[in-house]
Amino acid sequence: MILSRAEIDRRVAAGSITISPYCPAQLNPTSYSYRLGLEISELSSTDPAAARGDAVVEIGQAGMLLQPGRLYLSHTYEVIGSRECVVTLMGRPSIGRLGLFVQLSADLGNVGDAHRWTLELTCVQPVVIYPRMLIGELTFWETRGELSYYSGPYTRFSRPTGNMRELY
C-alpha cells in the first residue's frame, strides 16, 4: 500500500517518517516533493575505486549547466528516512519532461536510518540546475513481515557519495 498525503503528514508528525526540513506545501496526493541539495560531484573515472575521490563542489546560485553523456552525483536537500515504511525516490514530472534523470534505475530505499540521499543526475539535452529547486518526489510504502534495518555504508553519508561497494 502506498501512503496518502494525509498519512504521510500524520507519520511525519508521529516521528515514524523523517523529512527534515519538512514543508506541508510540498505534499502531493501520494508523495512528497523534495529539493536538490547544495553540492554536486561529476563522475570522472570508469574505475569504481578511483571515483570515490571525485571533488564535491557547490552548485552556484546562478545555476549549473549539466551536459549529456556525463553522470553527476548530488543529494537531496532534506534528510529523509523511515524505520517503518519503504521510501522510493523519483524525479518530478516537470523535471522528467526536461529530460533530466534524478536517479538511474535504483529508486528503492532501505528501511532504516535517515540521511540525505545521493541523487544520480544525467540529462538527455543540456539542462540547468539550481540549488534547492524542487527536483523529485518521494513515495512511502507499507511493508509486510518483520523489519530488519539497513546498516550499509551509505547511511553514514549526507553528502553526494560515490560507489562504496566492491563491485567485482
Binding site: 500500500m1 502506498i2 501512503l3 496518502s4 494525509a6 498519512e7 502531493n28 496526493p29 501520494t30 507499507e142
Partner: peptide, 15 residues
C-alpha cells in the same frame, strides 16, 4: 494500479 493507505486527497495540479 496500487492501493492507498490513509485518507485520499485528489490531484488538482497544473497538468
Amino acid at each position: 494500479f496500487w492501493c492507498v493507505e490513509g485518507e485520499i486527497s485528489l490531484y488538482a495540479g497544473r497538468y
